[in-house]
Amino acid sequence: MAKSLFIVIVGCGRLGSHLANGLSAQGHGVVVIDLRPEAFAALDAQFSGFKLVGDAVESEVLRQARLDQADLLLAVAEEDNVNLMVAQVGQKVFAVPRVMARVADPAREEAYRQFGIQTVCPTTLAGEALLATLGRSGEARR
């Protein structure tokens, strides 16, 4: 990502804050939304974006975050349903060019894909990583 993007991140938990810190450090414009003001404590002192307290399920909150101007939406809230809904609204209502969502339940990944939303599933990723590690240690023993 060479060009500076305007990015809206929904959820400032462990993943959301990590993404917000990293993308801000890379020089992108960032708005991070969370229901709980205390969630923003996880942001670095160098974080150069905006913090917005609100429920991202309400489109007014997304409008306030200037989602209409965003190049990228990252839906990484705690709940899969919230992420799915926010991602869909971002795509259909705000016409965000690129929408990505975290989904905890591998069974729901297919639903996201049908809506044309890119997903990352930590469960699947961790499972694959563990299996790969097991595979390697298995080979090493032989």
Partner: peptide, 14 residues
Amino acid sequence: EKNIRLALGQALKP
């Protein structure tokens, strides 16, 4: 607010 100063500085750089 530091983050606003930083955001503006970054946005205006180009």
